[in-house]
């Protein structure tokens, strides 16, 4: 069959083009049906599992309000009522972002969420936390008010003592603006993206009382090729739910994947 034959059918499943290979690679990153699953394990029916996505929703508002602020500039919110509203929305979404992130962290810490080959999920979450701290810090520095002046003049001494003041000058508003709106959001965005990918790849961690049997807790660990995980309809704690959880959803096993 000639490659120049326009009527030649494309071979299904072959990786003879980079787009097809890329598509296959992306599909294989998570088990089948887990990119946007419509079903979750029964133990997810608990309020403590809400804070991860609440944190993510807050981040969306943070980014959206921050994008609007970039159009007006960093002093816009002092002179324009709409700018003041957007700035307040940015501030309070950040407050909500950090509050939900810390509660999410508490929940995952006491759940030992690094179990079941989820060490990198935990690590990327910790990195996202520290990256967010840096982003919030630079945000405080570019408020163009006395608060920003106070924080920057206090912080410069510590940063100079650490020997990084020449490269990260908190008294330089222009540098801090660019760190806040370009570099740090990019870093946090990439880390959060990796974190979400790993959550989808490894699955949501079960509560300690609902430990899955060894070998099937992680869908990807069981099937590296990305095939769907063996459904877990039995086993210790398969349908157990954490304290406060509603009764398990009928027909949803601890590891049931999306249909």
């Amino acid at each position: 069959m000639s490659r120049t034959d326009p009527a030649a059918p494309m071979r299904a499943g072959s990786h003879d083009s980079w787009t097809r290979a890329l598509s296959g690679w992306i599909e294989g990153l998570v088990p089948k049906g887990q990119w946007l699953p419509d079903r979750q394990p029964a133990y997810v029916a608990s309020w403590i599992y809400v804070f991860g996505v609440a944190c993510l929703a807050s981040l969306v508002v943070v980014i959206a309000s921050g994008l609007v602020l970039t159009f007006g500039g960093i002093t816009w919110w002092h002179t324009n009522s709409f700018g003041h509203f957007v700035n307040s929305m940015h501030l309070w979404s950040v407050e909500l972002f950090f509050a939900t992130m810390v509660i999410h962290l508490w929940g995952k810490f006491f759940m030992a969420a690094w179990r079941g080959h989820r060490g990198m999920t935990w690590a990327t979450g910790a990195l996202a936390f520290f990256g967010s701290l840096g982003t919030a810090f630079t945000g405080y520095l570019i408020q163009t008010n006395f608060d920003a002046q106070w924080i920057s003049t206090q912080a410069k001494d510590g940063l100079n003592a650490a020997g990084v003041g020449a490269y990260f000058n908190v008294m330089n508003v222009g540098q801090m603006v660019l760190w806040h709106v370009s570099f740090l959001p990019l870093v946090v965005g990439v880390i959060v993206g990796l974190h979400l990918l790993l959550v989808r790849r490894r699955g949501v961690v079960p509560p300690i009382g609902a430990e899955s049997p060894v070998g099937v807790e992680s869908p990807v660990a069981a099937e590296p090729s990305g095939a769907s995980a063996p459904p877990e309809t039995s086993g210790p704690g398969a349908a157990a739910a954490p304290p406060g959880a509603a009764r398990p959803t009928a027909g949803v096993s601890a590891q049931e994947v999306g249909s």
């Binding site: 029916a45 608990s46 309020w47 509050a99 929940g107 959880a245």
Partner: peptide
Amino acid sequence: MIVVFVLAILLPFPA
């Protein structure tokens, strides 16, 4: 935040 954390553990999730 601590109160919300405790409530998130104790309160039942709506079915």
